[in-house]
């Protein structure tokens, strides 16, 4: 189940030698980022870092700007104000190929226009490495990603014939097969059952453990609390809070942001559990 970063990643090797995670520079460094479309402000004045080896969860109500922020981090969209640095360079200055070998993105909506087989879809995740020495690992990377996402039994099915949850997992496998040092996941758990939700977050967790910078948009606050190092709560385009789950996920903040009274309980494993007051 462990994920292997590309050979240029020093984290896995050094982590074995000295248990406390080495201090790595932030992969993503967003500085006072704002996004406006016409009169609408989608994201305003957001500063956030996602370090290598760190799992950051972006949470917040619908329309709070989580996906927009993620697309700015991914380099899809130029911020109207502020800037995003990725690996110490403006994310918009990277060439698409170099960027694709360093960060992978799972979009919210994953469709495939023609009936490609699952194997072929996951193989597309290897496209950025074509013509590079890492291309020798293609087969192994694909096989590992398929197993990790529990879709190895689907390789011969066409993507278009899969259920929503299966599509989501195959798409995640494609992202893992890309083997990048940074990963952005937009609601990877949206269509998944209980077990696969946990599986996906566990995969994200183990990526972070191997030194990958991971940012995940989530709706389930308890899930975010259980797996994330840091939780960023977005509220109408702004960052309402950013910090460790225990610090951030308080009933007062959640009630304010979501407009819904909640209980925040101490879970049996010590992580906060968020339940609506019914």
């Amino acid at each position: 189940m462990s994920h292997t970063p590309q050979p240029d990643a020093p984290a896995a090797a050094s982590a074995v030698a000295e248990p406390p995670a080495p201090v790595l520079p932030p992969a993503f460094h967003a500085d006072r980022v704002g996004v406006s479309i016409g009169p609408a402000t989608l994201v305003e004045d957001v500063s956030i870092d996602v370090a290598h080896g760190e799992l950051v969860a972006l949470v917040g109500p619908n329309g709070a700007g989580k996906s927009t922020l993620l697309s700015v981090l991914a380099g899809d969209r130029a911020p109207s104000s502020g800037a995003v640095a990725f690996d110490n360079r403006d994310v918009r200055d990277w060439t698409p190929g170099d960027l694709a070998r360093r960060r992978a993105v799972l979009a919210q909506d994953n469709q495939v226009a023609f009936p490609f087989r699952v194997w072929e879809v996951v193989e597309m995740g290897r496209a950025p490495w074509q013509g590079h020495p890492e291309a020798d690992d293609d087969e192994e990377a694909i096989a590992q990603a398929l197993t990790t996402c529990d879709v190895a039994h689907l390789t011969e099915r066409t993507f278009t014939s899969l259920s929503g949850g299966e599509r989501a997992r195959v798409s995640l496998a494609r992202v893992l097969a890309q083997r990048t040092r940074a990963v952005l996941l937009d609601e990877p758990t949206a269509a998944l059952d209980l077990k696969h939700q946990e599986d996906v977050l566990r995969v994200a967790r183990s990526l972070a453990h191997d030194g990958v910078a991971v940012a995940v948009v989530l709706h389930d606050l308890s899930l975010a609390a259980a797996y994330a190092d840091h939780v960023a709560v977005m509220e109408r385009g702004r960052l309402a809070a950013l910090g460790s789950p225990a610090d951030v996920l308080t009933s007062a903040l959640i009630e304010r942001v979501y407009g819904l009274p909640v209980h925040v309980l101490d879970g049996p494993d010590g992580t906060p559990l968020v339940l609506p007051r019914r």
Binding site: D76, P96, R101, N110
Partner: peptide, 20 residues
Amino acid sequence: ARRYDLLALGERTAGHLGLR
């Protein structure tokens, strides 16, 4: 040809895979 395969993922995802 191989780039056309990636295009089937939609332009955003194809872009994430390094396609111009």
